[in-house]
Amino acid sequence: MTAAPILKLEHLGVTFPNNPVFSDLNLTIRQGEVWSIIGKNGVGKTTLMRTLLHQLRPTQGKVTYLPSVNDVRIGYVPQFRNIDADYPLTIRDFVGLNLTGWKLPWLSAKERAKVQRILEQTGLTQLANRPIGQASGGEKQKAYLAQALVEAPNLLILDESTASLDPVTKTELLDLVTELNQRLNLTVLFVTHDIPMAQKYTHQYLMMTPGKIEQGPIAQLTDDKVWEGENV
């Protein structure tokens, strides 16, 4: 039995003024799948993710979230982020920012427990009271992931979120994502240049090259294809 699709891209294309990024992208993403999105710098991976988030309007085709999963909650860890180094915003506070809604200004006991749990899962308990602006690159990445996860998303989009992590931390976080995928059926889109990692942790791949987009089970991602995708 195949899982229910949650996201469908039909003939999707984005063109910036004088710069066609990609076109005619057809893709169905099903619940619980883990995709790697690969391709060389500037090919349009981040652009595609922003289109999925409705931050960019596609110039052709459409993005549809399917009602088979009512209420698609997206957790997105963007590639770049601007946070002033001086802000008195602790990592704990930063993670809690994502708990929104028409609620009281302060977090409830239940919400604080949620934040605490995710801090533990991402290994940030020791750093919880450090200002986010002063955290190291890798610590920030962990905090971003924690913030994206705190609202229990069912679709997680990571844009090169492991690029600045050391090997041990990288494995820890990917194990966490894998565990959430298995336990909660979390769907994951993983933009990355790390092919061995993609082969180890993801099930499907989408390889973007200028003018051509290929997809398939990760086992079919051969070295020749990678070489071609990353170099042509």
Binding site: Q55, I74, Y76, P78, I83, Y87, L97, N98, Q147
Partner: peptide, 10 residues
């Protein structure tokens, strides 16, 4: 305090 995050959140 986190404009990027707020936009991502929609």
């Amino acid at each position: 305090f986190d404009h990027t995050g707020a936009r991502v959140k929609g």
